[in-house]
């Protein structure tokens, strides 16, 4: 592993940065959506649920292309953000983070939703009778009890984000140092003569990162069960 080249390191670090930013930004939205889906009944709920899961079943190229149409420099949202807030996504690492965030969102939301659904609502009622306003009930009872699930969702989302390829390369291309993540670096390397060894090293890095994330998610899930049983 010691002979990882600077270019490979660049791709690895970029992947990690993109995945961390994608996960951190997606988390508050994920928690809010998980709570909404777990606790509220409203018109269009199954539609919203389907939209959240769409990136899981759509071809990643399609998701990437839709992102390009929406968040590209000439896209409806992208144009507005670029002109008014100076935020540019297309062909930038920020765009890679956006693509990874969208692609990993279903995996991030799911454990959060399940852990909120598993919380005994009668505990929240007890908190109310003790004088806790609804937002305090959420912060002092719901969220702490759901925390292992929230962390598990973040870990899974991170693992998915770090391996994302199709939507990212479609949306922000494959620019070394800017948008070339581990996946797109491997893709370039296996198309290059003599690239096999470097590709192999990055493949090993991917496997290690993914396995680590899955083990971490499993550990958090176990903690969640313990927490709910009050030990």
């Amino acid at each position: 592993m010691s002979d990882i080249s600077p270019a490979e390191w660049t791709a690895i670090l970029l992947s990690v940065r993109v995945a961390i930013i994608a996960t951190l930004v997606a988390t508050p939205f994920g928690i809010a959506l998980a709570w909404l889906l777990a606790r509220r009944d409203f018109w269009g709920k199954s539609m919203l649920d389907a939209i959240v899961h769409l990136p899981l079943v759509l071809p990643p190229v399609v998701t990437g292309y839709l992102l390009l149409l929406t968040f590209g420099r000439r896209g409806l949202v992208g144009g507005f953000l670029a002109d008014h807030l100076g935020i540019v996504f297309s062909f930038r690492w920020t765009g890679a983070a956006l693509a990874c965030g969208v692609m990993s969102f279903p995996l991030l939301v799911r454990p959060m939703r399940l852990s909120i659904e598993a919380i005994d609502r009668r505990l929240e009622q007890a908190a109310e009778t003790l004088g806790a306003a609804p937002w305090k009930v959420f912060l002092t009872v719901t969220l702490p009890l759901a925390l292992p699930g929230v962390l598990a969702g973040m870990v899974l989302g991170f693992a998915k984000a770090i391996g994302e390829f199709g939507a990212t390369i479609t949306f922000v291309s494959n620019i070394p140092g800017e948008t070339q993540t581990i996946s797109s670096a491997i893709y370039s390397l296996i198309q290059t003569p003599d690239g096999d060894a470097a590709a192999g090293r990055l493949v090993i890095v991917s496997i290690v990162l993914a396995l680590g994330a899955l083990i971490a998610a499993e550990w958090f899930a176990r903690r969640a069960t313990q927490r709910l049983h009050g030990n």
Partner: peptide, 20 residues
Amino acid sequence: VPAWRRRIGYVFQDARLFPH
């Protein structure tokens, strides 16, 4: 008046202590 503003205490059959 919502429950949290009533200052009415409640002891449930199943205790409902906060497990965390």
